[in-house]
Amino acid sequence: MHSSTAKAPSPVLIRTPARLRWLLAAAALLAIVLLLSLAIGAKPIALPVVIDSLLGHGNSADSVVIRESRLPRTLLGLLGGAALGLAGALTQALTRNPLADPGILGVNAGASFAVIIAVALFNVSGPSAYVAWACGGALLTTLLVYLVGAWGSSRLEPMRFILAGVAVGSVLFGLSSGLVLLNPGAYDRIRFWNAGSLDVRDLQLVLQVAPAIIAGGVIALLLGRSLNAIGMGHEFAVTLGTRPLRVQAWAILAITLLTGATTAVAGPIGFVGLMVPQVARWLVGADQRWILALTTLLAPILLLSADIVGRVLVPGELRVSIVTAFIGAPMLIWMARNKAGRS
């Protein structure tokens, strides 16, 4: 390992009113995007009808579309987006590496591996069966990564943890591709799950994982202050009365809940967790509490607008994970060239 790792340029101090303004703007934008997500699609529906059907009035075809298809989808976008963003922010804070995303801890690889085993060896199919497998896979994998990363030492070293995640993740990835390449039928089913989509058409499925996401989100938001302390270094954090190991354990639990639950329903969706916390850091500074709060609002905006664009762009719909990358990446490039280059 090199003695100095690449560090994010340290942001200038940003005042609280400016941060509040960003937060409010993000909240307003999120509300608009939520409504648009309900209204726009293959069949555009007027806003009054949308609101009526949400309140339970009206049994027109439009209301059915809203309740059966658009509502689960929007709810998943909101919860899943916030979950992926928060998990990303936690991972970056925990590993003190701005390049880390939850995928680095092997969560996605674990979830995929479990689903592939289910499909290839146990002939399981259908989204609700995938959910259980993916959740189990994500949990076991993070546990394994944690054990390897923290083996025999009293503290969690960020670099060891990342390497452990990369190592375990790639073993699972290798096993997954081996299984899939030897089994074309499973490959056919898995390539669609792997592309990630919000189009679940089943409110129950979303509600099933909602408690896990909300619990994870609450833990994440409560960790802000402790993560700030840990960011200053292990010794300093201990002096400030923080117990790093405990905070890290909570953070890992939250990351697993958030990513595992989301991936289980929507399939692996990359990039949101990496990019949004990065952008939030540029907007509100290095304080984890603000980064976490802003990420919670910004991430669903990105995910939902990507989903909306995917619905209207081509007749057959583009997968949300694909559009997310195409909307998010140019923004990230632009910001990296302008904001991050200034220091």
């Binding site: 690449a6 560090k7 994010a8 340029p9 701005p98 390049l99 792997n194 592309a195 990359g270 990039f271 990496l274 990019m275 990065q278 583009l318 997968r319 994970s321 694909i322 559009v323 997310t324 990358a325 195409f326 998010g328 990446a329 140019p330 990230l332 490039i333 990296a336 060239r337 991050a340 280059g341």
Partner: peptide
């Protein structure tokens, strides 16, 4: 700049990866 190179590389990779998935 090392960090900028990494971020931009990740962004371009993400776009191409999405295209590949598609």
């Amino acid at each position: 700049h090392g960090f900028r190179l990494i971020v931009i590389g990740i962004a371009v990779s993400a776009m191409l990866g999405a295209f590949n998935t598609w």
